[in-house]
Amino acid sequence: MSKKILFILSEYGYWGEELLGPLVACDEWGYQPVFATPTGKRPHALPPSLDPGYVDPPLGRTVTTAEVAVAARELDESTRLDQPLSLAGWLPERPYLSDAGHLRRLESYHRELAEVDEDIAGYDALVIVGGSGPIVDLANNGRVHDLVLAFVRADKPIVAECYGVACLAFARDWDDRRSVLRSKHVTGHPKEYDYKDGTGFLGTDFVIGPPPYPLEYILRDATAPDGFFHGNVGRDTSVLVDYPFITARSTPDSFLAGRKLIEVLESGLRRFGW
Rank of each mutant, 00 (worst) to 15 (best):
D155H: 10
K156C: 05
L9E: 01
G268K: 09
P244W: 00
G209V: 02
P252F: 00
F206D: 06
H44G: 02
D82L: 08
P244Y: 01
Y163F: 15
F151Y: 11
G227C: 07
G164F: 06
T251F: 01
V159S: 01
D205M: 09
R177N: 15
E77A: 13
V159G: 04
F170E: 11
E115I: 08
E18Y: 00
L181H: 05
L149N: 04
A69M: 00
L75I: 06
A71Q: 14
R73D: 03
L6D: 03
D226L: 09
D119F: 12
W274F: 15
P211G: 10
R172E: 15
Y109R: 06
I246Y: 03
P212N: 11
H44E: 05
D82E: 12
D119W: 14
P134E: 04
N141T: 00
G89I: 14
D27R: 14
P252S: 11
L20Y: 05
H110M: 12
D175A: 15
L215Q: 15
L20V: 09
D155A: 14
E17L: 04
Y31N: 05
W274K: 08
P47A: 10
S10C: 06
T37E: 01
A125W: 05
D117Q: 13
A69T: 02
L75G: 13
H230G: 00
G133V: 01
R270H: 10
T251A: 14
V207M: 08
W90V: 03
L106M: 13
S10T: 09
H230E: 04
V165L: 05
E93R: 15
D194A: 10
Q83N: 14
L269T: 12
P38H: 01
Y193P: 00
